[in-house]
Design a protein around this nucleic acid. Structure first.
Lengths: 223, 223
DNA sequence: TAAACATATTAGGATGGTCTAATATTTTGT
DNA sequence: ACAAAATATTAGACCATCCTAATATGTTTA
């Protein structure tokens, strides 16, 4: 069984390699804020445990086993976040650091119970997909708000990073998942956007925020 | 802040010293299944942290600070057990090992939320008192069933130890907290008891079981 | 293409938490 | 009251997880 520490490395590898299929020691080091030599020796261990493929000076690749175990940690994290929001009444900006701890609990019946009580959800409160028990995960097909153009109407589907500060910021603008956003204007010099949604108009979102908002395009006719 | 390991030592000290006000290295060692020298050196650290008073070859006494921090760990454990039973539908025999892990989470808002959702309970599903946020705990005034005599009628208020095996045993006899038990007979040679309660008659409970059942005497007239 | 920079690895050390073996002290039983 | 037993302590070792310093490799760029 993997320790909490090992689970954190697995999660990091899973997230970092989700797009390219691989990650570097340096990326893991920055992600976890752990020095490279420490990461390096842990990867040696992971290699022996059959969790990653690691040749010297080459990038890290999760094995099928590693990917499964990593996905199950992410599953525990996201199920927990969903439970905290849906069943306990926490705000979406409060749950990350609690889930960060609960995800390391070894008690399948506990997570299965949450899953059942929630009705087997497929996304967490931030719109991120919850991996299945088999480790399968539906990759978000969404695009960044920052990649949209003037005049488009989009629905907010997920946030790219669930930092408390971003989420609190969105709370103050009453911008929640499902919001239908119309892009009124884009400032060319700083790529900030003027948008309107559900009663609010002329809201300005900086490009940093727009980079973190994942949306899907709506037909002109969709409400 | 105390580590999970330290929290376990605190809990052990709290439980073991609840009656006499002190505990020995040997008792802690047996309770936690950790060798005496290890306990000894941890107690040295606790001494430095101001959690216990420890003179060489003398018993251990929690300081006020140690007692408070210990009580808060017990509080987290028992609140969690209550939440798991009341809000998630677990059986009282399933919750101990889950709570044993959740009790180490550092997130006051999480435990405060459970507390509120439960309506500020004062006992856990096994009848054990939940310490207050100030570390106060109401000591059980109950007596062991094994200290009762033939003809007495008592109410089951708590179980002395919440091992899954005992609780499953009680489940199969349909013996739950609140049950009104009448003592029909006591076998002198092995101190086992013949009892009846809520429709069940001639149930035999060994002295080991009777030692673990905490009850209060009922007036002859109480139902 | 060679120097400079970024990334990766090796070597060696620190701390937390555990152990066993040896020794010291206290308690118990005859 | 003394020997035996139980309890407590010290000493020294091990593993997990982190670190820094030094070195090796790979990549970028003048």
């Amino acid at each position: 069984m993997n320790s909490s520490v090992e689970e954190n490395y697995l999660k990091a590898l899973f997230m970092l390699s989700s797009t390219k299929g691989e990650a570097t020691v340096n990326e893991v080091s920055r992600f976890l804020d752990i020095k490279m030599p420490t990461v390096n020796s842990m990867m040696k261990r992971f290699s022996e445990k059959g969790l990653v493929i690691h040749e010297n000076y080459k990038p890290l690749k999760l094995t099928a086993k590693g990917r499964l175990e990593a996905a199950l940690v992410v599953r525990k994290h996201r199920l927990t976040e969903m439970y905290l929001v849906e069943k306990m009444g926490f705000g979406w900006e409060e749950v990350h650091h609690i889930a960060e701890q609960i995800e390391h609990i070894h008690a399948p019946e506990f997570f299965n119970k949450m899953d059942a009580l929630l009705g087997y959800p497929t996304v967490d409160p931030h719109g991120s997909p919850i991996p299945s028990k088999e480790g399968n995960i539906i990759v978000n097909p969404y695009l960044k708000l920052s990649d949209c153009i003037i005049g488009e109407q989009v629905e907010l589907m997920a946030v790219g990073q669930s930092s408390a500060s971003l989420l609190k910021y969105l709370n103050t603008r009453e911008l929640a998942l499902g919001a239908v956003i119309h892009i009124d204007e884009i400032e060319p010099f700083d790529r900030s956007m003027h948008v309107s949604y559900s009663g609010r108009t002329a809201v300005v979102l900086t490009s940093l925020v727009c980079d973190s908002l994942l949306v899907r395009r709506l037909d002109k006719e969709s409400k």
